[in-house]
Structures are given as C-alpha cells and as structure tokens.
Amino acid sequence: MLLLVPFVAYLDPAWYDRMEPRVLGFPFFYAYQLGWIALTSILIGVVLFLGRLRR
C-alpha cells in the first residue's frame, strides 16, 4: 500500500505545476518532483524494513 503513495503524489501535475513557494531558488514544480524521488526511495526502504520485521 505504501508503494502506491508515489503514484498518487505524481498523479496530477495540476497540484504541483506552480512557481511558488520557491525552495533554494528552485520553482515548486521542480523542488516537489525532485523531493519525491527521495521520498519514493525512503518508502521502498520502509517497505523492505517492515517486510524483514515481519519475518
């Protein structure tokens, strides 16, 4: 289920297709999408970790 979160995050560009707020000079559109790469990676890590705990 956690693995569906990134799909939802990127689903509708209307949510993040804007300039403000800027993050370190990056328009929100770019900051948001780059940030979600890291979050995707972390979510997969969490799923892996939970799977190991269950065993």
Partner: peptide
C-alpha cells in the same frame, strides 16, 4: 522534465 516522475515511479512498480 517528465523523465523525473517517470524515473521515480518506475521503482515501486519494479520492486513489486
């Protein structure tokens, strides 16, 4: 820039 969301959501899918 669509390459970026593309290269992110490929992973949860491939993981499964």
């Amino acid at each position: 820039f669509y390459a970026v969301p593309y290269a992110a959501i490929a992973y949860p899918f491939a993981f499964v």
